[in-house]
């Protein structure tokens, strides 16, 4: 009996085996030029429409602001005013008279510190709250109140505590971005299917293995949602915080430009802030895709 059963099974499983390579081979055999043409088309579909919109907006902006006595400079003025800043982002004349690269990297560094601490603390606290009913009952109301406090409201308090601008800015980043990470992680942990817990119980994973092999991967899609919201918030907060604490940083650069009535420089800085915020968001999204192997939805 066992032989025929095995045979019939081998016959049925042979089918997908035979057909699978054919499926994967087809794209490989397609001519290279056709493949590139297809890729170019896909890129064009994504890139061309926003380019057209941006060009149109620039034209409208130029038309509105080119009149004499206009409060804001037109794009052509912005470009000519900030030519030096655009083409030489690396100059360093000492003090806060530095190229934009240095301001941006100082801001990014603060974000990196504050956000890393927020990620670690957020995932840890989120796991605790998601796993323990009592931790949730005790901590959740506190989180719900604290998370509504605007980032800048924390700044005076942290300046009083740290007596220095740098750690205060990092603290503001941390306190701003930690809440969505905590809350999303907790939801993710709470939503781990009972099946996975049963598997872990049968296999007898110890708590540490359960954490690393079941909890984190199972909650990863939720955790990364929190991390993505968090990075956005921390980039929002850093600009505001730096305006107040001064020193090197893109936030203070904007404030300084305003004080010296360099409106074009403000516009350039805003452009960079937007681009970097976008890149940070994409970075976390890409990391999420890589870590969850595209199994986020299962």
């Amino acid at each position: 009996m066992s032989m025929p059963a095995v045979k019939t099974d081998a016959a049925t499983t042979a089918l997908p085996v035979a057909s699978a390579p054919v499926v994967t081979m087809t794209p490989k055999r397609a001519p290279q030029s056709e493949k590139y043409a297809k890729m170019a088309k896909e890129v064009a579909v994504r890139v061309v429409p926003p380019l057209i919109v941006v060009a149109l907006l620039l034209v409208v902006w130029e038309l509105i602001c080119r009149r004499a006595g206009s409060a804001l400079p037109p794009p052509s003025r912005v470009f000519s005013d900030t030519r030096e800043l655009i083409f030489d982002p690396f100059f360093d004349h000492g003090g806060i008279d530095k190229g934009l690269f240095w301001h941006l990297s100082a801001s990014l560094q603060r974000v990196a510190y504050g956000y890393s601490i927020a990620a670690i603390v957020g995932v840890a606290l989120g796991t605790l709250v998601g796993q323990s009913v009592w931790a949730m009952r005790g901590l959740d109301p506190l989180f719900q109140v604290l998370r509504t406090i605007p980032p800048l409201a924390w700044l005076p308090l942290s300046l009083a505590a740290f007596r220095d601008g740098h750690p205060s800015a990092i603290f503001v980043i941390f306190i701003t971005s930690v809440w969505p990470i905590i809350i999303n992680t907790a939801v993710g942990i709470r939503n781990i299917p009972q099946d996975y817990r049963n598997v872990a119980a049968v296999v007898q994973l110890n708590p540490l293995e359960f954490f690393s092999k079941i909890m984190i991967p199972a909650a990863a899609p939720y955790i990364f949602t929190g991390l993505r919201i968090g990075i956005g918030l921390s980039w929002l907060a850093i600009v505001a915080a730096e305006m107040l604490i001064g020193g090197v940083g893109i936030g203070f650069f904007i404030w300084d430009a305003w004080n010296s009535s360099h409106i074009s420089e403000i516009i350039l800085a805003l452009f960079y802030v937007g681009i970097i915020g976008f890149v940070l968001d994409r970075l976390i999204a890409g990391l999420a895709k890589f870590v969850t192997h595209g199994t986020a939805v299962n």
Partner: peptide, 13 residues
Amino acid sequence: RAVVFQNHSLLPW
């Protein structure tokens, strides 16, 4: 006492 679960319960990651 290993269990084969109804919905397979394989870990998707």
